[in-house]
Design a protein around this nucleic acid. Structure first.
Lengths: 111, 111
DNA sequence: CCGAATCCAATATGATACTG
DNA sequence: CAGTATCATATTGGATTCGG
């Protein structure tokens, strides 16, 4: 059966789905920082100065639970921790890309 | 001057910009309901059954403040209220579109 | 350096009831 | 129909401190 008039309900459900995955103000910025090659806790913080350790810590856990990143602990003397993006996480780049475009064109400066 | 290595900071800022405009779980679903032609309070509620009147009311005010919609009151006997999308709101469709695609492909059912 | 722990304020969301 | 009022809870965010 084809969806027609109630197609809108499906589309809304899909978007809500996406919104759940990237909910909050931080997940996409974090992923972006990682897309750019920064995968250590401290590096991510440098790319997103406004975020606190508490929040970053929580968000990283959320992202891990969502299978968007993987936490890798390399046991060494100062114990190095690295977060790696999953293949899955890259499926979000089209979304991120559109959001970059929109945000660039509609900068808050004009408000 | 060209942005190069710190380009990432700009991109993150752009996305944060976009996230602010569509923050929360409801703004995009509301806009989508309106894209589909439903512009009365009640109609929107029907498209998003989970939302309460309290939240919908607040979100509509936010969207108005963001210039994404306009509230039009036609003084009549039962006073009809209609929300109209602004041209500006349509600039978000590419973002919404990508989110529909993503949400469709990565349905929660598999989690 | 990488966080976890604690405390606390601010928002967001929800349920219900009620009004013009 | 289109909200507002009230209450309660959940989640988020921020500041600071502490430990391996």
């Amino acid at each position: 059966m084809k969806e027609k008039s109630n197609d809108i309900l499906n589309r809304i459900a899909h978007v809500q789905n996406t919104l759940q995955a990237i909910n909050g103000k931080w997940k996409l910025p974090i992923l972006m920082s990682m897309y750019a090659g920064k995968s250590r806790f401290r590096d991510i913080q440098r790319n997103i100065p406004q975020i606190t350790t508490r929040v970053l810590s929580k968000e990283l856990k959320d992202l891990e639970a969502s299978k968007l990143i993987i936490r890798i602990v390399t046991d060494g003397h100062p114990v190095s921790v690295e977060y790696k993006l999953t293949t899955y996480s890259y499926t979000l780049t089209p979304v991120v890309d559109e959001m970059i475009k929109w945000g660039k064109q509609h900068s808050k400066g004009s408000l």
